[in-house]
Amino acid sequence: MTPTNDQSIIKAVANGDTLAYAQLVDRYKDLVFNVALKLLQHREEAEEVAQDTFIKVFKQLSSFKGQSKLSTWIYKIAYNNSLDRLKKNKKYRNDVPIDGFTTERLKCVDNALEQLIEAEKQQLIKNSLAQLPEDYRLVLQMFYFEDLSLQEMAEIINIEANTVKVKLFRARKKLATILEETMQQQHKIMYYGTG
């Protein structure tokens, strides 16, 4: 669906065609659900927040002036909604210290990852990502999955583009640190056992 179609849906909804809104929900439901899931790490809660996001989008649709992309605008509402829920739950994650990484250490992490079989690798990466603070997890998703620019990310998170750049850099380092630690632990278990 092209942005023009987004516009025609907005017009149809404004003219009272509520059913047209279902198309918009279909188009952006995965995006909104994943934002909520990345931040909340809980499927049921993420679904609730995603639904609430679409209710808010519907109520505010007439105030959307097209200054940004519709997806960015919806992303922003989803992000704020998820943050509100996080604050309500007081579920802020632990802080993992960031290490300085050299090329050698990065190669070690990369090689160790390569030696794992696919299923193990996927599980290890999912576990490592789950240990990241919510905002770091989200910037990584926005950058690597959604292909959003720093400017778009800045608009969603409501901070300067330069700050997003720093956040992204710190998120990468943090994830590398967690991966390294997780693999070291796994290595110890493999060679020395749990006892």
Binding site: F33, E47, A50, L106, Q122, I125, K126, Q141
Partner: peptide, 27 residues
């Protein structure tokens, strides 16, 4: 190198699909 490693790592964290009845619940 860090960027390349994370890019590779992130390919394993595939986005999840919203539940099938999501749209009808919203509507």
């Amino acid at each position: 190198q860090l960027d390349q490693l994370i890019k590779k790592v992130m390919t394993y964290d595939t986005p999840e699909a919203a539940p099938a009845d999501f749209t009808s619940k919203v509507m």
